[in-house]
Design a protein around this nucleic acid. Structure first.
Length: 588
RNA sequence: GGGCCCCUAGCUCAAUGGGCAGAGCAGGAGACUUUUAAUCUCUUGGUUGUGGGUUCGAGUCCCACGGGGCCUACCA
């Protein structure tokens, strides 16, 4: 045989360790296998494998959209790990039309509806366009997560004529395109009306749809032309194609917004774009895409992937990339989320609270078709615990399984190496509860944590986790679960102390040093009731002393944090400092 | 109309190309001069929605049904 079969080449290039060698397998492994197999179909050779993503910068790129980026990223990393040339190509659909003015944006922006996202000004005036305004923060977040990708702007590509050849090709084959689109369009079955009102509405809409009569389209039909120019006069896509000359490639149009009538030459003037369902398969063929994910909404029958798959074959003579559909990402515990806009959390928001590898891990550990929630509430603590425990497991080579594999995928990338994690790992729970009472002082937290058995040299040893614990505590822990230290002494309570209480407080304050340490403070706090009963600090407590301790602690909590309970007293004392304790325990 | 996902302990969820059903919380017992949504040790808890099928073996694969959720139809 002159040529090896696809199968043989795929195996040769894939080089995945064979079954039984103990190397764990997960969805990323399989997706990478598919992409490699795909790349070998047809073209042969050792050309670079392309993992693609695409996103429209029409608004904040939220954590659901992040799956679009991370899925091909993880697959590309896996392919790279096998020593095969690969790139992650990301297309910004910034040549798409601006569709609606979101809440919070001046109403005047409705003027820009129909213009490319790259041509709409930034209402916040900090970037050169609407599109850039939303691309920039995502770029920063991805960099923090070690995601490196080759970015392409659809605006630039179209304007530069990079797709012109394919555009003309599509236009020449517009009948085939319409045939395919129409086939999927007619899938619509007569919906059953639930009541009379609906039946009427239904009759109307059905009547409307029958009107264009595209079914028998022919070359003469311009209503479904696959290419649409932006109006040269007003920049909007509100144009109707009135004529097209196949020989000269002159396209005539009128704009319904500004009334302009003009002619654009498709071959030379680059003023428009293919409609979405044609644009996607066109890019697969131009960029030689081997793998690209898509949201579930693109995967349903009659939707863009299904249609694109047929178009790419029949019109562009290429095969659709291997594909995974990803499910949606939900959110919880974010009532107070101060997201950049719209209240949907973005990657930047998540990175305020989660270490970058943990955010990656959320996406790596689930198969794309699995939906999951990102919880900014109490779940965060558990997530960190789980992550830390997985990290300990990953340190043992004997325990390498799919979970550890996900940990590895989350922890390091080719571009960024091992992503930042704390040199000294302190449980998030502890950092957060200490942060709760220290009024945002990293130094103080560091000191208390160090004296609490987590030795470290400096605040930097606790980063990047410490910052996240502080942010999370401040922003996401509900007020009723936080400890609020009194501003002023409780004069009322201090005015009606019992004799015992009075003696305890006096004893405590007499012996409270200016500089506190954990052990001394612990001994003192527990010792005060002993002293009051004539015992020494280190004497074993009697039953009476134990009861006194209970009452004494409660008194301290009431006076310090206006509650019956609170953080461990030594911690609280250290957090507040001697002076403040003294102030709050002394009648004004 | 079509498609996808989900149903696992009281609760929230794991189990990623079939291989002994697991965590956290809650519950129970014990330890602690220790009070925090304390901590540590031990522990109860299951016919994996229902009914079939394939298999030596099914939470996992196939078919049907019930319940819940999402997507899609015209446009990008």
């Amino acid at each position: 045989m002159a040529h090896p079969t696809c199968e043989e080449r795929a195996v040769a290039r894939g080089n995945r360790s064979e079954k039984g060698s103990g190397d764990p397998v997960d969805w990323v492994t399989r997706a990478a296998d598919d992409a490699i197999r795909h790349a070998d179909l047809g073209e042969g050779g050792d050309r670079m494998i392309t993992c693609a993503s695409g996103a429209s910068p029409s608004g904040p790129i939220h954590l659901g959209n992040l799956r679009e980026f991370l899925t091909p990223h993880l697959v590309a990393e896996e392919i790279r790990r096998r020593g095969i040339p690969v790139r992650h190509l990301h297309s910004w659909d910034d040549f798409d039309r601006f569709r609606k003015v979101p809440a919070g944006v001046p109403a005047e922006w409705s003027e820009h509806i129909g213009r490319p996202l790259s041509a709409v000004p930034d209402p916040w005036a900090c970037h050169e366009s609407w599109a850039e305004h939303f691309k920039a923060p995502l770029r920063a977040a991805l960099a923090e997560m070690g995601v490196e990708m080759e970015e392409v702007s659809q605006t630039e590509r179209y304007r530069a004529g990079a797709y012109t050849e394919q555009v003309l090709h599509a236009i020449r084959h517009r009948d085939t395109i319409e045939e395919v689109l129409a086939k999927h369009r007619t899938k619509k079955a007569a919906p059953v009306a639930e009541n009379e009102q609906e039946a009427e509405a239904l009759a109307d809409s059905v009547a409307d749809e029958d009107e264009p009569e595209v079914g028998a389209a022919g070359a003469g039909s311009l209503a479904r032309f696959p290419y649409k120019p932006y109006c040269r006069e007003c920049g909007r896509d509100t144009v109707d194609v009135t004529a097209y000359d196949d020989d000269t490639t002159d396209l005539s149009y009128t704009c319904s917004s500004c009334g302009f009538s003009g002619v654009t030459n498709v071959a030379t003037q680059h003023e428009g774009k293919l409609v979405w369902k044609v644009d996607w398969p066109m890019r697969w063929s131009v960029e030689q895409v081997d793998f690209e994910p898509g949201g579930l909404d693109h995967s349903t029958p009659g939707s863009s992937y299904t249609v694109g798959k047929e178009l790419v074959k029949r019109v562009f003579d290429f095969r659709a990339p291997s594909y995974v559909a990803y499910a949606f990402v939900g959110f919880a515990g974010m009532q107070k989320m101060s997201s950049s806009a719209g209240g949907v959390p973005t990657a930047a928001d998540a990175l305020q609270v989660l270490e970058a590898p943990i955010l990656r891990w959320l996406y790596a550990r689930r198969q794309p078709k699995q939906a999951f929630n990102i919880d900014f509430g109490a779940e965060v603590v558990r997530l960190y615990d789980e992550w830390d425990s997985l990290g300990r497991k990953a340190a043992d080579p004997a325990k390498r399984d799919a979970q550890v594999l996900a940990f590895e995928r989350a922890s390091a990338t080719a571009a960024a190496g091992t992503l930042p994690t704390p040199r000294v790992v302190v449980p998030f729970r502890l950092l957060s509860s200490v942060a709760d009472v220290t009024a945002g002082s990293a130094e103080l937290i560091s000191g208390i944590v160090a004296r609490g058995g987590h030795a470290h040299d400096s605040v930097a040893d606790l980063q990047p986790r410490l910052d996240r614990a502080m942010t999370w505590t401040a922003e996401f822990v509900p007020a009723e679960e936080r400890t609020t230290v009194r501003e002023q002494p409780d004069a009322d309570r201090l005015g009606r102390l019992t004799e015992d209480e009075q003696r305890w407080l006096t004893t405590l304050l007499d012996r409270l040093p200016a500089e506190l340490d954990v052990d001394g403070t612990t001994a003192l706090v527990y010792g005060v009731p002993k002293l009051a009963r004539g015992l020494a600090l280190d004497d074993a407590p009697t039953d009476e002393v134990k009861a006194d301790q209970k009452a004494f602690f409660r008194l301290l909590y009431e006076l310090l944090v206006d509650a019956e309970r609170g953080p461990r007293l030594p911690t609280l004392f250290l957090a507040l400092g001697s002076e403040r304790i003294r102030h709050l325990l002394t009648a004004p």
